[in-house]
């Protein structure tokens, strides 16, 4: 009886997530991703300006459909994503542990918090309009009401440290409100972002609603900040690099993007509404009352 050789594992190729597909970078470039101890983890795709532009096109294409889904449906899809994430818990624990150098217990807690965060935001889909909108008691015979609507295409520079919980915390509020997103993942810790894109792709989220770029954020951030078809940009990933954040904010002014400046955030704390409201427009509608 021959000895059974230990099975060779099948490694995963990490690519980008654009428009519902998982393409390599158009440049063909990759970069080495290491774990917290500096050991090789994987080669990840290194996105370029062109990839960023392609992702914006995909996000724009997806916006009309996604923003006109019912709020209930968007909530269901986000909840579905939480279910799928939970089902892949072991994989995420391993990736988060590798990326962030956490203990197993901490990595588990982080993945669980990410799942719970998705559930929390999923529930907001069909409630936020009642909290931030309403009717306006104008002093003339008009029915006047204000409702929140998505701003459009949002560029997100994901936090550098928190590779999954941070990522989910910045992406979920943007899409639950009906926006579509191009997210530049953490430069050094990109792997969970692509696995998360796989979760979204199997959760009935339409292609193009979430597009993920890996690679140095510095390669894609200027394109997202200056792109005339991006409506808002979240500079969270520039935390600690004030000069970079300022340059990007200046570029964002060309089409008057809504800008969220980097601020120190505790991803384990319960979020407020502001990560949803900053990507919402208030629309006010007037109609005469009469017979």
């Amino acid at each position: 009886m021959g000895r059974i050789m230990s099975r060779l594992d099948v490694r995963k190729t990490y690519k980008l997530a654009i428009g519902g597909a998982f393409p390599r970078s158009e440049s063909g470039r990759t970069y080495v991703v290491e774990d917290a101890q500096g050991r090789f983890l994987a080669n990840a795709a290194s996105a370029t300006r062109k990839d960023a532009r392609d992702a914006v096109v995909a996000a724009r294409k997806a916006f009309g459909g996604w923003s006109s889904r019912t709020a209930y449906n968007r909530g269901q899809i986000l909840y579905r994503a939480a279910e799928v994430l939970e089902g892949r818990r072991a994989q995420f624990v391993e990736e988060v542990q590798g990326s962030e150098g956490l203990s197993r217990k901490n990595a588990e807690a982080t993945v669980d918090a990410a799942t719970d965060r998705l559930v929390w935001y999923a529930g907001w889909a069909d409630k936020l309009a009642q909290v931030v909108g309403g009717t306006n008691p104008v002093s003339a015979p008009y029915f006047d009401f204000s409702i929140p609507e998505p701003t459009g295409i949002v560029g997100v520079l994901a936090p550098q440290e928190s590779s999954l919980l941070g990522l989910v915390s910045v992406v979920a509020p943007v899409i639950v409100t009906g926006n579509t997103v191009v997210v530049a993942a953490s430069t050094a810790r990109p792997l969970p972002s692509i696995t998360f894109a796989e979760v979204l792709a199997t959760s009935d989220l339409p292609g193009g609603v979430v597009n993920v770029l890996t690679g140095p954020q510095a390669d894609t951030a200027p394109t997202l900040a200056s792109h005339m078809d991006v409506n808002a940009i979240d500079l969270t990933g520039t935390l600690g690099n004030d000069d970079v954040g300022k340059e990007l904010e200046i570029a964002a002014a060309d089409n008057l993007k809504r800008v969220r400046r980097a601020q120190d955030e505790d991803w384990n704390a319960d979020p407020a509404l502001d990560r949803m409201t900053w990507v919402l427009e208030t629309k006010t509608v007037w109609h005469p009352i009469g017979i």
Partner: peptide, 29 residues
């Protein structure tokens, strides 16, 4: 895609009614 929509009226304003734009019409209400 506009911050204020007037149906069968136009150019109405009120202190209680939020006003402000989408896109390059600015931000905030």
């Amino acid at each position: 895609r506009a911050g204020v929509v007037w149906a069968n009226t136009f150019n109405k304003f009120d202190p209680a009614s939020p006003f402000g734009g989408y896109k390059e019409s600015g931000y905030g209400r």
